[in-house]
């Protein structure tokens, strides 16, 4: 209350401080320093170091593939064992991300109103987060394995007479990605939906728009940016899949994803240069997909719809 500022500040530096402050620089910015230091030391430095490393291929890579300092990249694009992993990853991550988003929309749309047990449902949907990829994999292996409950049920019901291969293939990885990614997509889309002002839809209703028209003309355009964001986030989650591709997938065959190849180069072959190359190509591929989605999104309505985005 009576705390008056009696700090006798030196007047000489005041003007300089003023000039800097007018450009937005003053002592408050010091609070940014720990975060900046962190960013530079733990992100920028290792990352540039990694990019540098990709141009220092091991002698054996150079001998096999040629190309001088670009040997790692030559190897990446020419070695079918490596390059095919790009398609394998895309074939897994894109359908999963699309599925998660497209299935979440009608479900979130149906469940956006208040109903009994809504809180229970959203609590249950958080459960998969507690499982983590490794445990989901273990559960799928037991639940969907040859002796698992699914096959046992299907066989005793007489639907199939041979155990249906659910795990150790593409389907297993896909299921595990859906189980971990779907709740996330659902929660995000629900919160985007709740950000759309119900008055807009009510207005359309009074003007005689039916359910399909309202969805097509009102909800979808307003939701589209949120859909793009959700798609990107679930895609990122599915794209860097690694444990489940190894555990419930077919690690040398149809689920030989890029992340797996990067780890193999890093851990088993100790070829840090090659590992960095694959890792950085992974980032490039992912950024391309994100850029395409964002480009598409830039053609859409850009006002505020509430929600975050």
């Amino acid at each position: 209350m009576s705390a008056t500022n009696t700090d006798p500040r030196p007047k000489a530096s005041a003007s300089r401080r003023h000039r800097l402050a007018e450009r937005g620089i003053d002592t408050q910015l010091l609070m940014l320093i720990p975060a900046l230091l962190f960013g530079l030391l733990l992100f920028v430095y290792p990352f540039t170091y990694g990019i540098g490393l990709t141009f220092q291929p091991l002698p054996r890579t150079q001998e096999q593939w040629g190309g001088g300092v670009f040997a790692n990249y030559v190897a990446f694009f020419k070695d079918p064992f490596l390059f095919d992993s790009v398609w394998i990853t895309m074939r897994l991550a894109l359908p999963v991300a699309l599925f998660n988003v497209l299935v979440s929309v009608p479900i979130a749309f149906k469940l956006r109103h208040r109903f009994r047990g809504k809180r229970l449902l959203s609590t249950l949907l958080v459960l998969p987060i507690t499982l983590g990829t490794v445990l989901t994999a273990q559960g799928l292996l037991i639940f969907g394995g040859r002796q698992g409950w699914v096959n046992r049920f299907l066989m005793e019901a007489g639907i199939i007479d041979q155990p249906f291969p659910i795990v150790n293939n593409y389907l297993g990885v896909m299921l595990s990605l859906i189980i971990s990614g779907f709740p996330f997509a659902f929660l995000l889309i629900s919160s985007y939906l709740s950000g759309i002002d119900p008055a807009i839809e009510a207005a359309a209703k009074t003007l005689g728009a039916n359910w399909k028209q309202r969805f097509r003309r009102i909800i979808l355009p307003l939701l589209a940016p949120g859909l793009a964001t959700t798609f990107i986030l679930t895609f990122v989650l599915a794209f860097s899949v690694f444990p489940s591709a190894r555990l419930v997938g077919d690690a040398l065959g149809e689920t030989r994803v890029m992340a797996l190849m990067a780890y193999r180069a890093f851990g088993e072959q100790q070829d840090y240069a090659m590992a960095s190359t694959i890792a950085i190509m992974m980032g490039v591929v992912e950024l391309v997909v994100i850029a395409v989605v964002l480009l598409w999104r830039s053609f859409l309505y850009k006002g505020t719809t509430g929600g975050k985005g």
Binding site: F43, P46, Y49, G50, L53, F239, I280, G283, E286, L287
Partner: peptide
């Protein structure tokens, strides 16, 4: 620029920066 610096680690797959970081 600062915002981008803080946004990048969230957007990138963890492996992309993880492997160079682990090498360091």
């Amino acid at each position: 620029l600062v915002t981008v610096l803080f946004l990048l680690p969230v957007l990138m797959p963890p492996i992309t920066y993880g492997i160079p970081l682990a090498t360091v």
